[in-house]
Computed example of a mutant assay.
Amino acid sequence: MISDRPTEVGDRAVPGHWEGDLILGLGSSAIGTLVERTTRFTMLLHLPRMERHGIDKSVKNGPALAGHGAEAVRDAIAETIMELPAHLRRSLTWDQGAEMAQHAQLRIDTGLEIYFCDPQSPWQRGSNENTNGLLRQYFPKGTDLSQYGTDELSAVAHALNTRPRKTLGWRTPAEALDQVLNQAIIDGVATTG
């Protein structure tokens, strides 16, 4: 639970702690969102519908053909987060949605500590909720989100990550993340010299 998170997560002092969620669209379509708490850097998860969506009847405990079932979300998070250096993969805080039923395997696959918000407490992932609000400028409610591919999601993430933020002293999330990455390189050189 979120109450078990270390204080470094809550005070945003240490980078590498993420918040995640899904934004839902028309026809049970979805896009996954990951937001780093310190830098507000955003990564979007492509969650395409499975091949037989709309054709096959839903099977209890079967695959989520809408594309945002537990296995699909686990795989999308793992694939995306593993592109980052280890020091930027510390934890992930999510709501209590069924899409995180594979959280134990996600932890094994990525090394992320996984925390869950209290029920009906979206403000406990404030950075992610704010980002999801910004994303609705690009993906309005009632839109079929399955029409957007990885290229479109990358373009939207780029737009958000190059948008200056007051909370970052008018730096962009990309600049803030770049500073974190450069500091890690400097610290690495200092310890080996």
Results as ranks from 00 to 15, higher is better:
Lys141Leu: 10
Leu88Glu: 03
Phe41Gln: 07
Leu153His: 09
Glu79Lys: 09
Val59Ala: 08
Gly133Asn: 05
Met82Asp: 02
Arg89Ala: 00
Thr42Gln: 14
Arg163Ala: 04
Asp75Leu: 11
Asn130Trp: 07
Glu129Asp: 06
Tyr148Val: 01
Gln105His: 11
Asn130Leu: 03
Thr167His: 00
Leu92Ile: 02
Glu83Met: 12
Leu47Gly: 15
Cys117Leu: 10
Arg89Lys: 00
His68Met: 09
Asp118Cys: 01
Leu88Gln: 05
Thr42His: 13
Met100Tyr: 01
Asn128Ile: 07
Asn161Trp: 00
Tyr115Ser: 13
Arg163Lys: 13
His53Leu: 06
Leu92His: 02
Ser121Thr: 08
Leu153Asn: 12
Trp123Pro: 09
His158Trp: 11
His158Arg: 01
Arg74His: 07
Gln120Ser: 14
Gln124Asn: 08
Asp56Ile: 09
Pro48Leu: 04
Ala98Val: 04
His68Leu: 09
Glu99Phe: 10
Phe139Ala: 04
Arg165Ser: 04
Asn132Arg: 09
Ala155Leu: 03
Thr150Ser: 10
Ser146His: 14
Cys117Gly: 04
Asp109Ser: 04
Ser121Arg: 05
Gln137Ser: 07
Asn132Cys: 03
Ile77Thr: 03
Leu92Phe: 02
Ser146Ala: 14
His158Leu: 08
Asn161Thr: 02
Glu129Arg: 02
Ile114Trp: 08
Ser58Val: 12
His87Gly: 07
Leu112Cys: 02
Ile108Arg: 11
Met100Ser: 03
Gly142Lys: 14
Tyr148Gln: 03
Leu153Phe: 09
Glu99Trp: 11
Ile81Met: 04
Thr42Ile: 14
Thr42Ala: 13
Ser121Glu: 08
His46Leu: 04
His87Asp: 12
Gly133Asp: 13
Arg89Asn: 00
Lys141Cys: 13
Thr150Ile: 07
Ser121Tyr: 08
Ile55His: 13
Tyr148Pro: 01
Gly67Ser: 04
Arg107Val: 00
Ile77Pro: 00
Ile77Met: 02
Cys117Phe: 04
Gly69Trp: 05
Asn128Gln: 13
Leu112Ile: 02
Tyr148Thr: 01
Glu99Ser: 08
Gln102Gly: 04
Glu51Gln: 07
Gly69His: 03
Asn132Leu: 08
Ala64Glu: 00
Lys60Ser: 15
Gln120Pro: 01
Trp123Arg: 13
Lys141Ile: 15
His103Ser: 12
Asn128Met: 09
Asp144Gly: 10
Phe116Thr: 03
Pro140Phe: 07
Ile108Lys: 14
Trp123Ala: 14
Leu47Ile: 15
Pro140Glu: 14
Ala70Gly: 15
Val156Phe: 10
Tyr115Ala: 14
Gly142Ile: 15
Ile108Val: 15
Ala157Glu: 05
Gly133Cys: 08
His103Ile: 11
Asp151Ala: 15
Met100Leu: 05
Ile108Asp: 07
Gln102Thr: 09
Arg37Trp: 06
Arg136Ala: 12
Glu83Cys: 11
Thr143Pro: 06
Ser154Val: 00
Leu88Arg: 08
Tyr138Arg: 03
Ala155His: 02
Ala157Arg: 06
Tyr148Arg: 01
Val73Cys: 03
Arg125Asp: 06
His103Asn: 13
Arg163Asp: 04
Arg49Glu: 13
Met50Lys: 12
Arg52Cys: 13
Asp151Thr: 15
Met82His: 00
Ser121Lys: 05
Trp123His: 11
Lys60Arg: 15
Asp75Gly: 08
Ile114Met: 12
